[in-house]
Design a protein around this nucleic acid. Sequence first.
DNA 1: TGCAACTTATTGTATAATACAACTATATAA
DNA 2: TTATATAGTTGTATTATACAATAAGTTGCA
Lengths: 142, 142
Amino acid sequence: MKNSILEKIELEMAVLVRRVTSITSKNKIGNLDRSAYLLLHQLSVHGPLGVKTLAEKLQLDTSTVSRQAASLEKKGYVYKVPDHVDRRAYFLQLTKSGTEDFNEYKKARLDRFEVLTDDWTDEEREQFGHLLKKFNKAILEK
Amino acid sequence: MKNSILEKIELEMAVLVRRVTSITSKNKIGNLDRSAYLLLHQLSVHGPLGVKTLAEKLQLDTSTVSRQAASLEKKGYVYKVPDHVDRRAYFLQLTKSGTEDFNEYKKARLDRFEVLTDDWTDEEREQFGHLLKKFNKAILEK
DNA sequence: TGCAACTTATTGTATAATACAACTATATAA
DNA sequence: TTATATAGTTGTATTATACAATAAGTTGCA
């Protein structure tokens, strides 16, 4: 393997993370930031989940998720459903407005990605999605 | 274009940024974090630069760069060379230990990327580097 | 059954990276 | 020469995060 390829990945990754971070901290569409978005994404995919499960899925500390959940609850995007089996725990359930704003934010993000890749071939987009996913999986497992 | 491809890129990008962020906030190799690394990278590529130029290249506020520079100076990684043409300004110059630790950090990052992609084909690595760079360029320009 | 050990979630505290605003010193242009 | 612009610093605020301590509830076992 040529080391220069790794160097390129390594550098572009550092650049990417900082650019994307700075975009998402400026471009708050509506009320959602990236963290909130990922949390709502989990709920929209898996249905109601508790703080602990979310923390595992998101690879965050439970305290962080607890605060994110509290903030989303204050905005009316989720509400807590008591878990009758384990009375320490709740399920976080998406509200209608949470679902709506999540979808709106997602749409805005998609539009942005569409613009960013409008001169790419379909194959490049597919490759990029594929490799990003593969890379994320590697981070998780290695 | 199929929307599902964009959705995949969009989601994996959000995941990536958070994972990489959380890795680099934990894995501080030596004294360097990602921000410091990117700053030193600029100096190692372009030679001595002032705070303003760095801020432009890094797409950060000058105040942010000023603080990063102060922190790197305190660690002995850079020093300020007065600009005799414009006496408001300095050039930030890498020190020997700054260069050394930068290279060491870079090596550690490369090793990490090597592990993460050890079951990839060379072509996949090349594609990934290429697409990341292309994507970063798009963010900058669009 | 009742206590010890564990678990879920919250809250207190700390840190890091960032931006914006106010300021100082200097440079430039009318 | 005076007004405006610029380079850099510092004060302040925000956001995302982690770790530690704690409250409330659960579980396992003697």
